[in-house]
Nucleic acid binder design. Sequence first.
DNA 1: CAGTGAGCGAGCTTCCGCTTGACTT
Length: 985
Amino acid sequence: MPKTLVIVESPAKARTIEKYLGKGYTVESSIGHIRDLPRSAAEIPERYKNESWARLGLNVEEDFRPLYVVSAEKRQHVARLRKLTSEADELILATDDDREGESIAWHLLQELKPKVPVRRMVFHEITKEAIQSAIQHPRDIDTNLVEAQEARRALDRLYGYEVSPVLWRKVAPKLSAGRVQSVATRLLVERERERMRFVSAGWWDIEAQCDAAGAQFPARLTELEGRRLALGRDFDPLTGRLKPGSEVALLDEPQARALAEALTGSALTVTSAEEKPYTQRPYPPFITSTLQQEGSRKLGFGAQRTMRAAQKLYEGGYITYMRTDSPSLSAEAMTAARSQVKAMYGDAYLSPQPRVYSSKSKNAQEAHEAIRPAGNSFRTPDSLRAELGTDEWRLYDLVWKRTVASQMADARGRRMQVRLGGQTRDGRPVQFSASGRAIDFPGFLRAYVEGSDDPAAALEDREVILPPLTQGQAVTGQRMDASGHETQPPARYTEASLVQALEAAGIGRPSTYASIIGTIQDRGYAAKKGSALVPTWTAFATSALLEHHFSSLVDYDFTARMEEELDDIAGGRKQRTPYLRGFYLGDQGGMGLKPLIASNMEAIDARAVATIEVPRLAGSGIEVRVGKYGPYMSQGEARANIPEDLAPDELTLERAQELMSRPSGDQVLGQDPETGLPVIAKAGRFGPYVQLGDTTPPSRTASLFPTDDLNTLTLERALQLLTLPRLVGTLEGEEVWALNGKFGPYLKRGTDSRSLTSHEQLFTVTLPEAEALFQQPRFRGRGATAGPLKSFEYPDRTAISLRSGRFGPYLTDGERNATLRKGEDGPDLSADDARSILEERGKEPKKKPGKPARKAAAKAPAKAAKKPAGKASAGRTGRSAPAEGGMAIHTPLKSAARKAPAKAAGKSKSAAKKPATAPKAALAWADLKPHLGVLSEQERALVTATREQGRKVEEVAPGLGLDIKKAKGMALQASKKLNQAARGG
DNA sequence: CAGTGAGCGAGCTTCCGCTTGACTT
């Protein structure tokens, strides 16, 4: 009997399909993509590591050829599939019928290298009929569709891996940019900007309680003396004033109260009464985005929680696949839904015709059905109560109701609109209006009412029943209440509404909606506040950078345009390579990401990027910046941190001034019981510290430990810190002190010193311990961790030791070192592992400044030469000065020296790679000048005057309003900053 | 610009989409 291997994407699907196919078929799953571009250096195969494009994982110099690797997690699984393939007589690739699915099929083909016949089959619903029919109608792999997927993949990689480093350089390390996340972040930022610009406005109107022959109903004043009363929409959100040209009447509180008084008990007449019938159609069955939205509105679940519950339901066979963009129901589902409607609600509630739904989104790929109860007869939620967990049951209930409702009859009702005329006691004409809504036949609403995340709209929508009213009828305005209103800023995005907005713009896919929200939170671009997503100041800085310098990349239409191109590629009308050349290199009018990055790396002023425009602070002299330690404000030389929980739109001028006047780092914690002096916590140049006394200079100061937090510091702790430095005791007539220094905690004895391993030791270290430390040699003797952790011996080479270092565990044989990567560390590390790691990645330590390169360097195996020598464009190599004497020479010669090794790379790699570095040597003004952006205005003025014009600090300082001592300090700091910036710090 | 004792293996971060467990909090 011939054996056929069928491969689908999901294991749960594999189980179901195997049942339908019966004997002779083995159904396995790929578990998603089986290979991808390498994620990081660790995944790049050794033979490609030296390629200039290795970092990107695709050869941008040769047609953007991708480098695919099977990740470590997938290796075993792929090996298993390969084995199963070799045992089968036929292979059927049954991955999803969409761009990614086609690509998975192609990757399987590439990776499994089957020697048996291969067919491709597709289906859109998992029903017995659909599967059996699909297997009768196989086709070939659509290579154009695969090309489109590869283009998409390449573009995303290029965007992400080229633009992210710009952010590392200009904003903060570890940030990220991407086609999807950057637009999502921008949406949040733009909305917050609107809220920051928003000026609230107040207005008043009157609520009337009317009586029509004993029947009560509410009405609202809408016109006064022929003029319509102002509503929220009449106000300009930017000024809080009525929009220019508005002919509306505006009441303030006293006017409204007086008017209410004057109208109480007045006689009104019905001037018009209209009644209009309406019908409402049910909502389409769930797709991923609507499921997440309703999960949020009705169940209060985050997107992740909804998807977790859905995954469980799917795996248990309760619902169909949960990552879909198609609202269509299979024939069996339609029948099931309709028969259930009939059985549970009766014929009257059944839609006369089967309702067919199709996707509204033009980027939908519709590889699956809608999300619905599984099977050809739906199990009712009640019948499942006992077998499902709480979250799962509630979600199933939602899915069931929505699916059933989608085949039910329209809801029918009437909308009523009534106008009432009258006049005030002093004869001014007024008009009231009342509206009502009555449902005559609920139809599908019996089963399902869509939730709303706009409470105001929900309020308006509630059913209000008016008594029967006819034109000319007399009505009494029994009670009149003045009521005040305020315009509200646009609401922040929630997880659900962000997903909705992204989907509407065709950005992201069902499988990624939930993780997009995770990503922007992980990168520190947004934080949840209740259900709202609040963008951080970092998000503002990043978004502004991208909007100003990479505007087309964060355009809301970017993805839509990309999709059009991909459609053309999938349809064979265009080709992948020219498209990518345009995008990356700028061919044929393409955007040219690479040259854009190159020019922006130079052009973008990091300091300007870090400064965030806050309209409410315009003209105040207060600037908001994101710095290394978080967001802060500056006004001249004064600084104040912005509290973490302060949302950007809450930073009003008043709040900013309050924070500036009482900087968070300047808190009086209390009094020192001994001296009676105040204990003050401050944020200083070297980080947070406490001081005793408010004199200049204070009587004592002490830095906080890294574990301390300025905001939660107690008086008790501050006093403890202020006991430092502590006299530990005396050794041979020399005092031993425990101090907290710039490199951390240490002991001092005369001119000798030793580091301590933890800050808390400052309080606990004893004299004998101190003595033991001083007996150990200086830098090797770091507390208990001194010496190798482990040592490996070999018959044929020198021993390798495992040590704990500043950057974590590393291996060394005395000549070369290699830092261990994640997962390599630990007790499992064998001698063989250690040897191969060191041989593969071992690097010689850097040379001391000023020393000529040792001969050993030239003999070092080529492998040790990690980076290709001529990579000057990355701005990282070639920075080390080629001078022998420790001084850098900065003339045009230097750039020649930079380029030279590129040509000589083949012959003298190691020589080119390792010029004697002189990291501490001062750089020349010409090299420093481009980095002036990192300095404050005062610093810049100082440095420019001294370095460029050759003036002395003493003569420049008074002009800048600085005293000479301060100015000298500032000049020193500024110079350090500049050098650091120029070296790429 | 609160003030402090030295000088030490760097190398990685990052994208979007397709899928599940196997891990630990």
